[in-house]
Design a protein around this nucleic acid. Structure first.
Lengths: 195, 195, 195, 195
DNA sequence: AATGAATGAGTCTTCATTCAT
DNA sequence: TATGAATGAAGACTCATTCAT
């Protein structure tokens, strides 16, 4: 009886919106743009989402959840803390760097739509615990407190994402491999470990 | 006289717009907002700038020029390459971190208004040359090519600016001192020098 | 059985709509509001009524019919003309004043949906005949023609209904008893009779 | 320098809106209707009024003020209380009955836009004081309290306005002269005076 | 018959820019 | 030159009605 809400349409709207928001920005993207991109009537956009804002919120929330789930999966697939850290750098990071649209949105407009700091805090703490656990026997890192290490992580995290983002948006030639390599060396140096 | 008065109005528009663009974003700021903030008639805005876009472009261009000039000044005020690098980190960086509005604009909306990559390329190259000169006698850095070092610089630069930006926009508690300290340690480590 | 169930739904829609139309006005009430109030699916509304307009029409027509039937009943339950008039004022009027929703609709939006003048003409004529019959032996009222008396009736009728309506919609404190008393005295005075 | 706001345009918008709101109702009148009726561009409507609601509010407020001012003028132009009352009935009332659009709006949609009860209270009290003053020496009216007389006034006031309103909206044939005559007789009867 | 997703014309309002004064 | 009213395309969103299931 009656048609059921079509999960494909919902996904289509989210996908098209994500691309548009990433390329043009949230405010520079009109519902009419989304209509053209999806080939759906205006009304249909509103049977799946109550507002343009809500589309953005869902993109951010679901995007982040997916990202975080993949991080947990990466971590839980490894035994030792060292291999966990290695997997984060060599498997998880390259994977998320592929979704430039999500990165773009997260780094630009997301602040207005979610408490991005809470999300980053979670991620930051998780990696900090890992590092602390690894470095227990190493004297190198012991001189630094939590806040300092989290600051470092934040700079790396934001630096890497923004570098990738900028390289796609402009003609700057940054290789993902170089970024990963740089991160690896930095961590190896500062923690005196070999990944 | 009348000329001076004009310059004041132009500056007033730029200043108010910079604040508004930074706080609310470009698209979310109306000419009417600028009118209210400057207490100037609408028409006057258009005698100084041909369009809203142009205001943004000028903010970015002049902001960048100012930033670059200050970098040149910092560098030229020092004798040795080591002290130049030291001054960049300890004098120039803290100084530009104060202009959060400019950083905000540069990192969010600027891409749509200027070839930001060209600007960053210039900055990156300058520091690279400095580093190469310092490290001539040091074996540590020799293994890395230009592209790799520039990638590292980019990650640091974008990471630092975005961390500061995020800490202002959200409740994340990041201390500027920690950022500077982190950068210093990283460079000392990777280049085997003492700043 | 199924027939009965249908009647219930029809009545439910009419009742909910009447309340909503009275409270919010016709244009300010959406089909979706009626859906929420009845807990019925949208489609069902349209199996019982061809359009939103039609719901309004039926409310007015059935409401009026009910009102007129009750008037006939009141009148036919009395023997003499004097007691008929007395019953209209003391039984019929207080009864219809209870259905404020219907009054509201009749006085505000009904004009656009039915020929309200025909309805009022019928009512007016009926009471005029009654008055004429009573006043045959009284000289007082003989000076007035039909049109004048009907005008008076109309002013009273509309005045009373609107006063009640306004007292419910605003904070004006009007007592139904005062209204009835006022009408009674006015008629007694002008017709020189005792009700 | 620059054009000044045009009082004529403001008046044109108010006039056209008043007619439309009266004929079609507020919610059934679109800004686009007002645009067509005034032959003004949409934007201009909004340079004179901040919203559709505000147009309605101004119509009600200015309409009421005008009406009240004329009442004061009528009253102050007469010496004795009797002639004041006479002037209200024979001069003021016929005059306001001409503005059927205003009456229509006041009686239908105004409730949602202003505290109509406060306005009516003012008017009612003024006439009550007049009546009380006149009837000091007459025993007839002394039996009635303030609330009762105000109820009577309300019924008359609303009855008269609505009767005129209905006679314009439908084909009911009500003569203004008959209404005035009816009111006069009623007052003469109940107060035992000759107007 | 029952259901509720689908539809798109229409709603109010905004706003960058122009131009009469 | 200075001013701010004039302009109308474009914005987000609504909603009565239809129709596929």
């Amino acid at each position: 009886m009656a048609r059921l809400k079509d999960e494909n349409k919902r996904a289509l709207i989210l996908e098209a919106s994500k691309t548009l928001f990433s390329k043009q920005g949230f405010f520079n993207t009109s519902i009419s743009d989304i209509v053209k991109a999806t080939n759906l009537p205006v009304g249909s956009i509103y049977t799946y989402f109550p507002s343009k804002d809500e589309i953005m919120k869902v993109i951010v929330e679901e995007g982040w959840k997916d990202l975080y789930d993949r991080l947990l999966q990466t971590v839980s697939s490894q035994e030792s803390d060292e291999s966990k850290l290695k997997a984060i750098i060599e498997k998880f990071l390259p994977e998320i760097l592929k979704d430039v649209d999500l990165i773009n949105i997260l780094l630009s407009e997301a602040i207005a739509f979610t408490k991005i700091e809470e999300k980053i805090e979670v991620l930051s703490t998780m990696i900090y615990e890992l590092i602390r656990s690894i470095s227990k026997s190493k004297p190198t890192i012991n001189g630094f407190n939590k806040r300092f290490i989290e600051t470092a992580l934040m700079v790396f995290f934001l630096g890497i994402l923004n570098a990738v983002r900028l390289s796609r948006a402009s003609s700057i030639d940054i290789k993902e491999a170089d970024i990963i390599k740089f991160l690896k060396i930095s961590i190896e140096n500062s923690m005196d470990i070999k990944i």
